[in-house]
Amino acid sequence: MLKAHNIKKIKYVLLLLVGLTYYLLGGDLGLSDSSVPSGSAAGSEVYAAFQDKKSDVQVRGYGTVSRVLPDDLKGSRHQKFILDLPSGIGILVAHNIDLAPRIPQLRKGDKVAFFGEYEWNDKGGVVHWTHHDPSARHIDGWLEHDGEKFQ
Score class of each variant (00 low, 15 high):
Lys3Phe: 09
Lys3Pro: 05
Lys8Cys: 07
Ile10Arg: 11
Val13Arg: 11
Val13Tyr: 01
Gly19Trp: 00
Thr21Phe: 01
Tyr23Asn: 13
Leu24Ala: 10
Leu24Asn: 08
Leu25Thr: 14
Leu29Phe: 04
Leu29Pro: 11
Ser32Lys: 15
Ser34Cys: 11
Pro37Arg: 13
Ser38His: 13
Gly39Arg: 05
Ser40Lys: 06
Ala42Gln: 14
Gly43Ser: 13
Glu45Gly: 12
Val46Arg: 00
Tyr47Gly: 06
Gln51Trp: 05
Asp56His: 08
Gln58Trp: 01
Val59Gly: 01
Arg60Gly: 09
Gly63Arg: 02
Asp71Val: 12
Asp72Lys: 02
Lys74Asn: 13
Gln79Met: 08
Gln79Pro: 12
Gln79Arg: 03
Gln79Tyr: 02
Lys80Leu: 09
Ile82Met: 12
Leu85Pro: 10
Leu85Met: 07
Gly90Met: 04
Gly90Ile: 00
Leu92Thr: 08
Val93Glu: 04
Ala94Pro: 12
His95Asp: 03
Asn96Glu: 09
Asp98Ile: 09
Ala100Phe: 04
Gln105Thr: 10
Val112Glu: 03
Val112Met: 02
Phe115Ser: 10
Gly116Phe: 00
Glu119Trp: 01
Glu119Ala: 03
Asp122His: 15
Gly125Gln: 02
Val127Gly: 05
His128Ala: 09
His131Pro: 12
His131Arg: 07
Ala136Cys: 08
His138Gly: 06
Asp140Trp: 06
Trp142Phe: 13
Glu144Tyr: 00
Asp146His: 02
Glu148Thr: 15
Phe150Lys: 00
Phe150Cys: 06
